[in-house]
């Protein structure tokens, strides 16, 4: 093997081993199944690790800081956290992952753009490939002429941001729940496995696409474009109602696609690892750990990129399609 391939394989091996170890430790030291179920009013005693508990969002950092970000509250719990808030912007795992992804995106591209060279090195080539992909395969293929110059940056940065969010979700980072030693565990968590994050991004696309549709066509003509030409008014009205509902359902399908894909991938990996403790035999690891590794490679190598691509692509299709209706 060449040195490059050697290094490549070594990096993947280290990543897989580190992730599996961190996820297992995080599962074993985390809240057991009974504790999480108790808060849901389901008093079941058990010592089994609970993969769902890995997705619970607990406030991180000092209490005073988190309380300052909560508005319209009516009480306090035992630890001093305000409860029953109308607006709760306290800092948790998902927020930190989103900040981290935004920071990586901005810093990486700005640093590469600052030291552009005519004869590009590896990092610059990589960035150019990503940019070209977002520019040509996503934006140019989906946005029409009218909206291309205005929304290319939005669609391209959506792709890059979601890509980074999805990728860092498979790298163990120290933002898990607190372990027995009082420090945060290394754990796997995807900010996009939270419906709030994906729904917020979908809402931006939803409102932007309708805004562009009205801006380019006028309200009456845009609404009229939802039914096909040349059918009788009764049937046309019926199709218009169906199209109206399907416009609203885009909110669901787009947000849930990303959310469900990332949640299912993480849950599968964590479930396979926690099976060792649930069944209570080390020998089961011979079967489950390879499955977990397989799903890890599948999710990290394919699904993370594909879902970011599909989300950005659909945003482009919806925005472009609203500005230039086909019928």
């Amino acid at each position: 093997m060449t040195p490059f391939r050697n290094r490549f394989v070594a990096i993947w091996l280290v990543l897989v081993v580190a992730t599996m170890t961190a996820a297992t430790i995080s599962l074993m030291t985390g809240p057991a199944y009974g504790q999480a179920a108790e808060s849901a009013g389901n008093a079941e005693e058990s010592n089994e690790p609970d993969p769902i508990a890995e997705f619970e969002l607990l406030p991180l950092g000092p209490v005073a800081l988190n309380n300052a970000l909560r508005f319209g509250c009516d009480g306090k719990d035992a630890e001093g956290h305000k409860t029953g808030c109308i607006v709760d912007m306290s800092i948790n795992k998902a927020v930190i992952y989103l900040w981290l992804a935004a920071l990586i995106c901005c810093l990486f591209t700005v640093l590469v753009a600052r030291r552009m060279q005519l004869k590009p090195n590896k990092t610059q080539t990589f960035t150019e490939v990503v940019y070209e992909f977002a520019h040509d395969s996503i934006a140019k293929a989906t946005l029409g002429e009218k909206t291309f110059s205005r929304y290319m940056p939005y669609v391209a940065s959506l792709f890059m941001f979601l890509w980074v969010v999805n990728l860092i979700s498979f790298i163990p980072l120290p933002f898990g729940h607190e372990s027995a030693w009082g420090i945060a565990d290394f754990g796997l968590y995807a900010a996009t496995s939270n419906i709030n994050v994906t729904l917020a991004l979908t809402l931006v696309t939803f409102f932007v696409s309708h805004f562009e549709g009205v801006r380019h066509n006028g309200l009456i003509k845009y609404m009229g474009s939802w039914k096909p030409h040349g059918v009788n008014p009764i049937l046309g009205g019926f199709i218009w109602v169906i199209e109206f509902i399907s416009q609203l359902l885009r909110l669901v399908s787009m947000s849930v696609r990303l959310f469900a894909n990332m949640l299912a991938g993480h849950l599968l990996i964590l479930m396979m690892l926690s099976l060792i403790a649930i069944i209570g035999s080390v020998f089961i690891a011979i079967g489950t750990v390879p499955i977990a590794v397989f799903f890890f490679l599948f999710e990290f190598g394919l699904v993370a990129t594909l879902q970011a691509f599909i989300f950005a692509m659909l945003s482009g299709i919806y925005i472009g399609g609203a500005a230039e209706p086909q019928h």
């Binding site: 395969s137 293929a141 989906t142 359902l249 669901v252 399908s253 787009m254 849930v256 696609r257 469900a260 691509f309 599909i310 692509m313 659909l314 299709i317």
Partner: peptide, 24 residues
């Protein structure tokens, strides 16, 4: 290939969406 891929992803999105309605 390029055109077909774009159409495939759009169709994929619409088909896949039905799963999420059931999930919803």
């Amino acid at each position: 290939r390029g055109d077909l891929q774009g159409m495939m992803f759009l169709g994929l999105a619409l088909t896949e969406a039905i799963t999420f309605y059931a999930l919803l």
